[in-house]
Write a protein that binds this DNA or RNA. Sequence first.
DNA 1: GCCGATTTGTCCGTATGTATC
DNA 2: CGATACATACGGACAAATCGG
Lengths: 240, 240
Amino acid sequence: MKALYDAIFRDIRANIEDGTYPYQSFLPSESVLVKAYGCSHNTLRRALSLLRDQGYVQPIHGKGVRVIYQPAERASFTVGGIESFAETSARNHLSSSTEVGAFEHVVADERVAAATGYAVGDKLVYVERVRRLNGVAAILDRSYFLDEQVPGLTAEIAGQSIYNFLENELGCIVAMGKRTITVERATHHDKEMLDLNGIDYVAVMTTQAFNAQGIMFECTQSHHRPDMFCFRDTAVRSTV
Amino acid sequence: MKALYDAIFRDIRANIEDGTYPYQSFLPSESVLVKAYGCSHNTLRRALSLLRDQGYVQPIHGKGVRVIYQPAERASFTVGGIESFAETSARNHLSSSTEVGAFEHVVADERVAAATGYAVGDKLVYVERVRRLNGVAAILDRSYFLDEQVPGLTAEIAGQSIYNFLENELGCIVAMGKRTITVERATHHDKEMLDLNGIDYVAVMTTQAFNAQGIMFECTQSHHRPDMFCFRDTAVRSTV
DNA sequence: GCCGATTTGTCCGTATGTATC
DNA sequence: CGATACATACGGACAAATCGG
């Protein structure tokens, strides 16, 4: 809300999403937009680079900035960026609920350290949650939080929104996340907790979250029912 | 090779990857690095923002820039950015080979247009390839290329590296890519072409590639054997 | 094929704001 | 409070690619 380049980015993005700037058309030139927004060309370029990084436009040297955004044809679970479960389900117009299956304090041993990236001996909080989308148990989340970073976290809070608690109560901002996606055979536990309908594979998204201090304070393995999972991403070819 | 910010980005990245700047340490301050590289404040920041976007560092306001890169513990098939199959397999030290299963000219009908994002009536080249990793048929690629963008493409070339052909022969640069990952039930065709060992699900990565003109010229659906598939990604929380 | 206008790409120097210590 | 360090923004300069006359 504060940064000018961010406001310009959002404004242009909105114009792309509502069709004011349609697919394959060109944006007004840099100089025109600079006048329109009353900013420096440098600031405008920063907004444009955000649009490019997120797959909305593609600048073409000497020619113009082409819109390459196509509206999503069906709901996607993740579109890049970091979202909480509540945010994602709301954006996809899905009713959601959460049940907490486990909540306990543990110390990282060899096995946990290897799986999460924490150091052996770190004091952690283990939380297991089942996510329901439109009534279907679709996601099993197994999370390890760094104990010292989440003082006051309870099972009750885990049943609501942990991110809400972190940001509003603790003032702890989730600044960055690293994600890995694999497909793995459903465990006995998965079959027990999720409505898999006989499917015996799950899509596993592992997320490491870093706070504003650069400390990893969460590692979550989300086991998704495969036919309700979709992940989107945009990549830019690096100039080798 | 040309851009200064890119050279600085690569240099710092190399220092992070080889442990000169270890995990959780802080980089030298902006002003120090500016003097070291003899560049402007602005240019250095651009290099730093690349490092941040790719998950190497996390700048912390008023404090410093913390290294959050941890070396990959096991081979990942994709690490963000756009890579050809040959590049990816080489980076993971896997022997690879490709067999072309189909090569034909088609016109996009309703069904193909909906699945790929082309317009109905577009003239396309359909290529089907089976990728082997260490002798195992692990990936089935079904690609649609825009005919006018790939003149001279033959089945023989498809058996080698199409990207090599595009970049070196046609001078066609892959500038951007959009990816979607889903998990789907293996089709009869998948079971026929891949060594699935009885697994009846596949990880599907759909890629749309755009050239330097902003024209989508390739749409590929890669069906991966799930236990040989891994995807990595880094996300930054947008300031809402 | 050349030239000039337009447009994007890179880089610099400076100023100011804000968070941390 | 002051020093340090990152964050944002401005304005100017030049390079490189595209396109039309």
